[in-house]
Amino acid sequence: MPRLKKSLPHVALLGYLIVVLFPFLFVLFSSVKKDNNAIALNPFGIPKTFEFSNYVEAWVNAKISTYFFNSLYISILSSVVSILLASMFAFAVTRMRQGKWNKILFSLVLIGMLIPNNALMLPIYTIVRKLHILNTHWALIIPYIANAIPFTIIILAAFMRSLPSEIEEAAVMDGLKAPGIFARIIVPLTVPAMVTVFIVNFLGNWNEFLLANYFLSNDELRTLPVGMVQFRDQYQMNYAQMSAGIVYSVVPVIVIYAILQEKIIEGVTAGSVKG
């Protein structure tokens, strides 16, 4: 009886685990099957023969490599710049003594968290076009940077507030000015929080679809999510090849997740729990 009681939660949890993981396995198996027919005849099982040519064709047809590197550099660049700008802002409003301005500016940014950003797509489109950067990677990088700013500021400000004020008092004694305190004292201390925020921003940018879909029209510029949807629409009928495409787009994320999972989970949940 106690044994049964003990294993009951595991049965439920393993059930849930199967629900989560099975779609991945389904796609993985389908990706090495010969064609739709082979998938239809044996949808669940391990494939009898392995057709790796799907992978070759998907790589060529879908230009996964181009999309992949576009996504990678856009996501990294935007995340890094957001953190730089947001940490400067957070430093100023939490550590510099400007009386009420600190509070005013910080509350202003807090409002940003309430705004449903998809609703702002049309005006952002207008801005991007007035800047004459539509159809360049800047059309994504700049909005991505801006989009992440409120969240990044809130997390970094919370972290910086928790640092004892004796730190910069000592630094001021040593003759450091504000930029020096920021660069030499505060930033090194804030690195753990920055890593967390970086991961959150990176994943957000990596997966972003709406802006990437409407702001870029050049095939070479596309990011992975948009490229994948495009690929799906063109090769709709070839599920085996499509599965290979999905595997390509999912594997890097899973690898990153496997390496950094603790950080990622901590990071993604940090914002919401604290907020």
């Binding site: 489109y125 991007v128 076009r129 004459h132 539509l134 409407y214 029209s217």
Partner: peptide, 14 residues
């Protein structure tokens, strides 16, 4: 229906 209309609005069609 999407791309060209958007680009026309933006003033930067190919």
């Amino acid at each position: 229906k999407e791309k060209l209309r958007g680009e026309m609005a933006a003033g930067n069609p190919p």
